[in-house]
């Protein structure tokens, strides 16, 4: 059975066209941010924009030498530790839940999910009080803990859905062969779960990186994160859009590289046979 050759070409064209259009939609604002970061405050919002302009690196200079870089350090630290914790706690929990049945699984997993449903404005006050009682205000620990309430449910649910789909017979075979659950998880499940693990790690990183309210309320200047810095710059009568753009753009290049290398692990062709 061969597919109709013209149909295939048409399909490819449609797919290609769709991707190109979507890429334009995605990249247009980013390109605009990039150009904005190289302009003066006036010119950055000028319409129609000047295509040819004399770039200024003032915004980047401010970012590099104005004592703002520590916000990047804080954000990256908080996000990376969140990735680590979300996986360390989330993977075994998701595994356990996926091998459980009945009301316990249902109730526990739903309770975990419900944690993420809490609107930030509703719980920020109690979390503030809680962190204060633990003497954690102004520390990145406080933000890491608060972000876990967003990220752990995400990690557990994504992995739970994933583990559910993996056939259980290989696992059972391994167990009967004398492996314990930890070994099964480590040697059998994790290798085939690489695409989802990478996706979870990326998403946890992103949610932590972008989160504003907890990061702002629970910290002070020392532990300020990137979104908090951007917001506080937005609030000035200067409205330093080039600086805001520069900060966002600066985060994108390293992110692009990380995502580029990470996504290689989200590849097809993983066969269950391979892990046997």
């Amino acid at each position: 059975m061969r597919r109709h050759p013209t149909g295939k070409t048409l399909g490819r064209l449609l797919v290609g066209g769709y991707i190109v259009i979507y890429l334009i939609f995605v990249l247009f604002p980013i390109l605009w941010l990039l150009l904005g970061s190289l302009k003066s405050r006036y010119e950055s919002l000028l319409m129609p924009p000047r295509i040819i302009f004399e770039p200024t690196f003032l915004a980047y200079e401010k970012l590099l030498f104005g004592g703002l870089l520590h916000t990047f350090g804080n954000s990256i630290t908080i996000a990376l530790i969140n990735v680590l914790l979300a996986l360390v706690f989330g993977v075994p929990a998701a595994y356990a839940l996926s091998r459980m049945r009945g009301s316990v699984r249902k109730n526990v997993s739903f309770w975990i999910l419900s944690i993420r449903m809490a609107p930030a404005f509703g719980v920020v006050l109690p979390i503030f009080v809680f962190m204060r009682s633990l003497n954690l205000l102004d520390t990145i620990t406080a933000v890491i803990i608060a972000h876990l309430t967003i990220n752990l449910p995400l990690a557990i649910w994504l992995l739970l859905g994933y583990f559910d789909e993996l056939p259980q017979d290989i696992e059972d075979a391994a167990l009967i062969d004398g492996a314990n659950h930890l070994q099964v998880l480590w040697r059998v499940l994790l290798p085939v779960s690489r695409p989802m693990l990478i996706a979870v790690a990326l998403l946890v990183f992103v949610f932590s990186w972008n989160e504003f309210l907890f990061a702002f309320i629970l910290t002070s200047s020392e532990a300020q994160t990137v979104p908090a810095l951007i917001a506080s710059l937005a609030g000035t009568m200067n409205f330093d859009w080039p600086l805001m753009s520069a900060i966002s753009v600066s985060a994108l290049l390293p992110a692009f590289l990380v995502v580029f290398f990470a996504q290689r692990h989200i590849t097809e062709g993983l066969t269950l046979g391979a892990v046997r």
């Binding site: 920020v124 504003f212 309210l213 702002f216 309320i217 002070s220 200047s221 300020q224 908090a228 917001a231 506080s232 937005a234 609030g235």
Partner: peptide, 12 residues
């Protein structure tokens, strides 16, 4: 020591 934020967030 000074702590900054945008106006609405600072109020909160």
């Amino acid at each position: 020591t000074i702590e900054w934020g945008d106006e609405t967030a600072v109020r909160q």
